[in-house]
Amino acid sequence: MDSVLRAAGIYLFLILVFRAFGKRSLAQITTFDFVMLLIVAETTQQALLGEDFSLTNCFLLIATLLLLDRLFSLIKRRSTWFESVSEGRPLIIVQNGQPLEDRMKKSGVDVADVLAAARELQGLERLEQIKFAVLERSGLITIIPRG
């Protein structure tokens, strides 16, 4: 029982923490973000296992995590509200070449991020060439160029 509760607790805590810190917290992985991700994974792993390194505990933890993930996916598929709460919604951050400053600031995105996505995804050179930039649920920025 202990392992199942521990896995559920950690799963929920990670969802809450990453939701509180926004979509962009680990969306674009810099070298340091990658190191942070490894540290978080290592810390989580130790708390998950405790002092029990048995195969049974390992199987139980993996099964619990995957089951919880599946359960969350099913609920998200059925409920827009739950999906919005757990993953957020897409947000337009540039419209007709104009950056929507307030939205960008609150989402932790700047013009440089939008331009980087525009260069990478569409080969665009200037902000004015962008019709829409959307901050997706995943934290990635998608670009729709002007026609």
């Binding site: 509180a20 810190f21 957020g88 939205r103 019709k131 729709i144």
Partner: peptide, 19 residues
């Protein structure tokens, strides 16, 4: 403006506050 995107300004504002 022709872009079909499921955004919700009110939800987004509440979401930022909760965050």
């Amino acid at each position: 403006d022709g872009l079909q995107v499921d955004e919700d300004a009110l939800f987004q504002k509440r979401s930022w506050r909760v965050q």
